[in-house]
């Protein structure tokens, strides 16, 4: 029985939220540009959202919980440990498959799995490289895991992993869209206190260098 287990994230000041957003925006730009180069789709990059949410509120960010999606879980380790999750909705799957492979691929096909694992690797790799470079700390991504299922069921797993430690978490949500504004991929990162420190260090160096 853990009597003193923290159930909420320490509150972030407005300046700290802005700092997180600044670093996340650079990472999102890099990731968006990489996806544009890879797919030749002119990817629209939204400003990343930083929110403190109850765990039960996180699925509501992703819309239809029983809608089909591809989830790419990218574990990372080093000075920040955890998992990044990318969720590709049905329309984003079709667009990216069309752009990358030239044709729609049946669900469960290994080629589809490999393509989305690679996209997940590249996008998360860009984010972590920005974070590592700016903070001068080491964070590396590990091989991704790809599943195809209901969006809510994919999210469940990552929420259970953090759910026993806390009721509220600081969440970074990245969104990349096609030129019509349709969602290609949404990514959720729950950085934890060590991760937030890393983002703040990165923002500090960014400010110093500018």
């Amino acid at each position: 029985m853990e009597k003193d287990r923290p159930t909420t994230s320490p509150p972030l000041s407005r300046e700290q939220v802005a700092a997180l957003q600044e670093v996340a925006a650079i990472a999102a730009m890099q990731a968006g540009n990489a996806l544009s180069s890879l797919s030749r789709i002119p990817v629209q990059i939204s400003a990343p959202e930083v929110s403190v949410l109850r765990l039960s509120e996180i699925p509501t960010l992703f819309g239809g919980l029983d809608a089909p999606a591809i989830g790419v879980l990218v574990p990372f380790q080093g000075d920040m440990e955890g998992n990044g999750l990318l969720l590709f909705p049905e329309k984003g799957i079709r667009e990216l498959e069309g752009a990358l492979l030239g044709l729609p691929i049946p669900a469960g096909d290994d080629l589809r799995r490999s393509a989305f694992a690679e996209i997940g690797n590249i996008l998360t790799g860009k984010l972590l490289t920005v974070l590592s470079t700016l903070s001068e700390k080491i964070v590396v991504n590990l091989p991704p895991l790809v599943i195809q299922d209901m969006a809510g069921a994919i999210l469940d797993a990552i929420l259970a992993e953090v759910g026993a430690r806390t009721d509220e978490v600081t969440v970074l949500v990245f969104k990349l869209s096609d030129p019509d504004g349709a969602n290609l991929v949404r990514s959720v990162l729950i950085p934890g206190s060590a991760g937030i420190e890393l983002f703040l260090e990165a923002a500090g160096r960014l400010k110093k260098d500018s």
Partner: peptide, 16 residues
């Protein structure tokens, strides 16, 4: 009660 990421999680999410 499915095992969505087939044994990946090692923390509180292990065989959740």
């Amino acid at each position: 009660g499915a095992d969505m990421f087939a044994g990946h999680f090692k923390g509180t999410g292990r065989r959740i």
